[in-house]
Write a protein that binds this DNA or RNA. Sequence first.
DNA 1: ATCCAGATGCAAATGGTTTGCATCTGGATA
DNA 2: TATCCAGATGCAAACCATTTGCATCTGGAT
Lengths: 135, 135
Amino acid sequence: MNATRATELLRSAELRATTQRVLLLATLIAEAKPLSVDDLGLRTKNSLDTATIYRTLETFKEKGLVRRVDLDQGRALYEHAGEHHHHIVCTKCGTIRDLDICLPKTLQNQVREESRFAHVNQHALEFFGVCKKCV
Amino acid sequence: MNATRATELLRSAELRATTQRVLLLATLIAEAKPLSVDDLGLRTKNSLDTATIYRTLETFKEKGLVRRVDLDQGRALYEHAGEHHHHIVCTKCGTIRDLDICLPKTLQNQVREESRFAHVNQHALEFFGVCKKCV
DNA sequence: ATCCAGATGCAAATGGTTTGCATCTGGATA
DNA sequence: TATCCAGATGCAAACCATTTGCATCTGGAT
Ligand SMILES: [Mn+2]
Ligand SMILES: [Mn+2]
Ligand SMILES: [Zn+2]
Ligand SMILES: [Zn+2]
């Protein structure tokens, strides 16, 4: 179980290690992929109130423990925040895969120039396609 | 006005050129940036029912006249579909700028390999930063 | 001028997310 | 170990973007 690890992480983030938080964070670590609030509800056997899940995820996000993945309109997904990375989504079955690629520095600099923005801080990059099972 | 151009586009898309559709498409062409349903309501002086706007945008999307931009969770944005491009968003004032950059072919091929997906069809790429006015 | 498939307006429903408030609890303290 | 309370939770209601059912209206073909 990741309960111990989750508790440690909560402590270092200066958050109270409540039953609910440990459970949610351990689940996010175990699944290692973007989960919806509903997903989290199911994985925790509906033992947590929906409002608690939302509030907890927001807290986790502020502390950098999770990051929100906005793939489409509608429901938000959250994943345990590890290394910066991107995703590819199967448009047929919804499967999400991590990608260990990122934008080349040259492109990021190009954006800095072309945008004429004072700062460019982040970017979101997702790919969409059809996985082998869904061909 | 872009009313004439809008009517032409609707005709070539085999869509009936109703008052509402011409108005919406002309607005999207004129603004040339991603607009929310509320934006479109305001720009058209609240003369259109919200349900009509939603249904019209969906129709336009199916015909390739507009594309939906999912920047964050919450409200969807729609823009007149021209060349494939990306955006940078100011996280302070919300301003959205077009970017004429795209991913290098090498990266796209890399994704094809690493993902092990059968097909990779699209991608979404958005940058976030602070514009000069908001520094 | 007539006609009708498809488009619109209105109002109610839906679904994800947020919020107010009473109660509960983690963990600091004595 | 018992006490205590700021902060966390559960519950129910509110909120807000989007969708849907249905009666009425209209673009454009005849
Ligand atoms: Mn991931
Ligand atoms: Mn654009
Ligand atoms: Zn698939
Ligand atoms: Zn700005």
